[in-house]
Simulated assay, not measured.
Amino acid sequence: MNALRPWLGASACLVVAMAAVAMPAHADAVDTLREFVRDVKTGRADFTQTVTSPDGAKKKVSTGQFEFARPDRFRFAYAKPFEQLVVGDGQQVWLYDADLNQVSVRGMSGALGATPAALLAGKSLDQDFELSAQPSAQGLDWALATPKQKDGAFQSLRVGFRGKVLAAVEIVDGFGQRSVLEFRDMQTNVALGEQAFRFVPPKGAEVLKQP
């Protein structure tokens, strides 16, 4: 199994360290994040995810499509370099690795917590995160979300907006692995069928239940 895996529950995370000149923090970055969570009920976007190992020596780039519907329903469909699917149906989180024909499943409460999916598709920011505005960089306004649970899987998450449009999520996990998830063609409050957030294990797939 590759050490740099997509993020969520049993999977790993997202990020790229980009050099940029720091600019004064925009005070409304946190407000923009709060408005996103309050007003955007559904969303769909293409993404590119870059994962960098703690020593910076290894990088992995993945692409796919992301969809979500509040509360707690989301779908990450990774297409390249290998097919993988992460689906949160509101009660459970399913991770399907097509190459291994293997499915991991765990309860939503145990899988979500202070994760990127909770930040983007959850119901409450303040329950799990401390929020603060960050300096603008890379043409984006950034809000920092620090998990209140200090022994969780993530050290910090930064959310970048271009105006009011969600553009990127940057993460440092508990092992120092850095990731960035860059969104393209973000569509908000679009009609998404319930089928997008349902998962049935393929025939013959090994299903591993996690606590």
Rank of each mutant, 00 (worst) to 15 (best):
A121R: 00
D151I: 00
D185P: 06
P135V: 00
A45V: 07
V190R: 08
L85R: 04
A17I: 00
R106H: 11
A143W: 02
V165C: 01
L181D: 02
V40N: 09
C13K: 00
E206L: 10
R158P: 03
L112C: 08
R178H: 11
P54Y: 06
F47K: 01
F47A: 03
D31I: 02
H26R: 03
G163T: 01
G160L: 01
G107E: 03
R158Y: 09
S11G: 15
F66N: 03
L208G: 09
Y96H: 11
F47M: 02
L14K: 08
A143I: 00
A12F: 15
Q65C: 08
P71M: 04
V15N: 14
T52L: 09
S156W: 02
F154P: 00
L33G: 11
S132D: 07
A153R: 03
M18L: 12
M108R: 09
R162A: 14
T42S: 15
V159W: 02
G9I: 00
F82D: 08
L166I: 01
L166H: 02
T50G: 14
A79G: 06
A77I: 02
Q127V: 12
K150R: 09
G88S: 12
G88F: 05
R75S: 11
V165Y: 01
A25K: 08
L140V: 04
V86M: 13
K58D: 14
M23L: 10
K203H: 13
K58I: 03
V93M: 14
W142H: 06
Q195V: 12
P6Y: 03
A98C: 05
V21I: 08
G204N: 10
V37Y: 06
T32P: 14
E67I: 00
A196D: 10
D31W: 06
A20F: 13
P201T: 00
L119R: 04
V169T: 03
D151A: 10
Q155K: 11
D99H: 07
F197T: 01
Q92E: 13
D99L: 12
A191W: 07
D46T: 05
G113D: 14
K80I: 01
Q155R: 07
L33D: 10
W7K: 00
D99A: 12
D55K: 07
D89G: 06
G56I: 04
A137T: 02
T48H: 11
S53T: 12
A114C: 15
L14A: 15
